[in-house]
Design a protein around this nucleic acid. Structure first.
Lengths: 197, 197, 197, 197
DNA sequence: TATGAATGAGCATTCATTCAT
DNA sequence: TATGAATGAATGCTCATTCAT
């Protein structure tokens, strides 16, 4: 990647980060291109240089978040730790990610409103990939008799719901910091899964 | 209540139901008054006859959903069943409600964008009331040594997140119907709370 | 006129009076049928029973004001007083009328926007009639060598402008009451007309 | 001021001129942003690029007219001419201004309906400034025994009314042109003020 | 690459008007 | 006669998007 390409990639990512933050805060329809640009001290026109349109920006934001999440969990999966630790750790990282981005969740709502069929397809694929990582861990835990014999998909959806919901109630000014909250949520949810508890 | 008043109340409720459905589907900014009206084969003007403005409509929708939820859980609370049954039953009813309205959750997102301070106050109050019902049940369960000694509020938020998330993944065409899904979700979540499981 | 007809006529006049007041206050476009009706504790529908449409209401208001003004000045013209007294008295009555109705003037602005050609014709006729009354007095005064030899029409328009403008600056809470103000305005304007002053 | 800034200022003034014209013709409520834009072969959006909203446009129009009027009369006041000439000349310029803009007067009607308290304050200030210029001339004329000892404010209001009313009756197709009409009006009104006439 | 200006479609809201009762 | 409900056209305003420079 040439210097020029790298500069462009850098700028794109800046914009995406800004967009994610604001989209999470105001919602898709509530966010204007002006908002996103102003937040970066750019003009609207400049944003259009890097992204075809608003929807493209949303799509790439979404994609970036998902890809980062997948990387996170893949990394954990490779580690040499117990299956229990793997799941718990994955959840902690997910919750931290969600809290940090204040998102990871509003953007997932009703994708059919915003994305083209093709884009939805790609996003569904990424989501499936991410979900699959969790499913695999759960599956393995069940087989190893560490986890209860629950329906994998339902259990995973319960985990996701509980974790994503954190944006609704966690406020930084509370007694617990992000790491603690993430740990507690993960612990509690483990109770649902673990046998002999 | 006179016949006329009842007719108005009926119409208002029809509109609220339609609004809830569409708002849940498209989000606040994504929903147009046209959408809401057309869905009922009315004109925009007619909707404005019953509601001051879009925000008023949203507010009343939200209020209606919350009040109905509170009634539901209050009713269960009075019954002469075990604490375990109470919580489980409350969850089942909540999930069914959420699935039926396809909502109960998107509307809660970022209320500060849409509502006046006064309205937010009122809604926070209703939410607190609803939350409190669950908190009480959990508290009692803990005291009776039936439930684990978890942090009440965090546990309740985990339950809500897991339950509300169902709109994201439940589709009517699956193997399980609404009742079954609600039961499974409630059962799984009970595992988190119940001792000796 | 039968009792019924009289009742209708009475109601019509009530509405007209209310309309004049509100139209003067808020202007034509700024006044809603709702405003006019509510001011009389009626419903919009009722107003439509008496007047074809808003424009008809405006037209008749205008007409009523003009006719009353004409009656006023005709009455004065017949009296057995000096020409000087006639003009002065006419002006006093006009100013009082304008102040009382807080109008007689906004309604005259740009009639071509509001009225049909036919209605404009009728109003122009009434205005001409009213203007003519003043012109006659002025003419006579000039011929009698009491007034200066000014251009009749221009002089009359100056008088009207000066008198109608009173709604812009007279407030009831000042030192002078309506009668006094009317007298002063008339006196000052007479200085323009009278010879040997 | 840079070229760009000058271009913007120019455009703004074009819009203001257009707005003044149309507002004078149709009144505030009767004028649509579409009207104003179309008159300049612009689109509504372009107008909104330069002015926050309709009210802002109205306010700035009003302000521009008043400021120009004040400049006019200030300029005359400085000249080395008789007090009589000063007043007469000021009136001529005012009438010409009113006739040219076809306004200077409708906009003053009922400002409380349109403007914020702050804006009203500013406008009242400008109006007071303008009025004060006339008051000073009148005052001086009285002290110099050139003018009759009239109530300054009432006299000034009579002048304004008479002058502003010209928009109601002057039509370009008459025998007299603008300058002549302005001169006649000023002459006639001077008769009211001058002693020994 | 970036900007400012402009466009135009879309949306919330108002309101004169109609009409069944 | 009068009312309440409904309609629909109009209007202020926003904002994604384009384009010349």
């Amino acid at each position: 990647m040439s210097l020029r390409e790298r500069k462009i990639a850098k700028k794109k990512e800046d914009i995406l980060r800004s967009a994610v933050r604001i989209l999470a805060e105001k919602g898709y329809q509530g966010t204007t291109m002006e908002d996103i640009a102003a937040n970066l001290l750019m003009t609207k026109g400049a944003v259009y240089y890097y992204f075809r349109d608003k929807q493209d920006l949303l799509y790439q934001s979404h994609q970036m978040l998902l890809e980062r999440s997948i990387e996170n969990v893949k990394y954990i999966q490779q580690q040499d730790i117990s299956i229990e630790e793997k799941l718990k750790h994955s959840m902690v990282v997910h919750v931290e990610h969600v809290v940090n981005e204040q998102s990871g969740f509003e953007l997932m709502l009703k994708p059919e409103q915003f994305f083209s069929e093709e884009q939805q397809e790609k996003l569904r694929e990424l989501q499936a990939k991410y979900s699959h990582c969790f499913d695999e861990i759960i599956q393995e835990g069940i087989q190893m008799q560490v986890f209860r014999n629950l329906d994998k998909k339902i259990a995973r959806n319960i985990l996701f719901g509980a974790m994503n919901w954190v944006t609704q109630w966690y406020t930084a000014d509370g007694k617990k910091d992000k790491k603690e909250i993430a740990a507690v949520i993960a612990d509690y949810l483990m109770l649902m899964l673990l046998k002999n508890k």
